[in-house]
Computed example of a mutant assay.
Amino acid sequence: MASMNISLPDPMRDYVQDRIDSGQYASASDYVRDLIRRDRGGIENEERWLRDLDGSIAQSLAEMAAGGGVDLDAACDAVLIELATTDGQHRS
């Protein structure tokens, strides 16, 4: 296993030491390894989310190109008309 030296400001070093003293980690190396695993997992989750989003956008664009979907302006106009009609009925 390779070693790496890092420098931390005193408050950060104290925080790591507190985590070790509380029994959450066996050593500073254990703490850093856990942080790296969590960071890698977060990056993988973000990449997966972006791929899923890209797929969803592509699917939506394909549906729109095939004549599916709803025109946003028309949908908003319909909602505004409904709100105006409903609002007028409640004030009577």
Results as ranks from 00 to 15, higher is better:
G42Q: 12
L53D: 04
G69Q: 06
S60Q: 05
R37E: 09
E63Y: 01
L35K: 14
D39T: 14
A84H: 09
R37W: 12
L83Y: 05
V79G: 01
A74S: 04
D73F: 02
A65E: 11
D71H: 03
V79P: 00
S60D: 03
S56T: 10
E63P: 02
G55F: 09
G41Y: 01
A65K: 07
R37F: 15
C76H: 13
G68M: 07
A65C: 01
L80E: 09
W49S: 10
L50R: 15
L61V: 01
E46H: 08
I36Y: 10
T85Q: 06
D71F: 05
A62V: 02
L35Y: 02
V79K: 03
E44V: 05
V79D: 08
E47R: 13
G69W: 01
G69E: 04
L35H: 07
G42I: 05
A75C: 00
A62G: 03
A75H: 08
L50T: 12
E82T: 08
A84D: 15
E46S: 15
I36F: 10
G41R: 14
R40T: 08
M64T: 06
V79S: 09
L72I: 08
L61S: 00
L83N: 13
G41S: 11
A84I: 10
D77Q: 14
A66L: 12
D77F: 04
G41L: 12
D77H: 10
D71Y: 03
G67D: 11
W49I: 05
N45K: 15
G42L: 05
G42N: 11
G42M: 10
E44G: 02
D52P: 01
G42A: 10
A74E: 02
M64F: 03
S56K: 05
N45A: 15
D73Y: 09
E47I: 14
D54N: 04
G41N: 11
L72K: 06
C76S: 13
D73E: 15
A58W: 08
A78H: 06
D52W: 11
L50Q: 12
E63D: 13
S60P: 00
A74V: 07
G42S: 10
L61R: 06
G55A: 06
G69A: 08
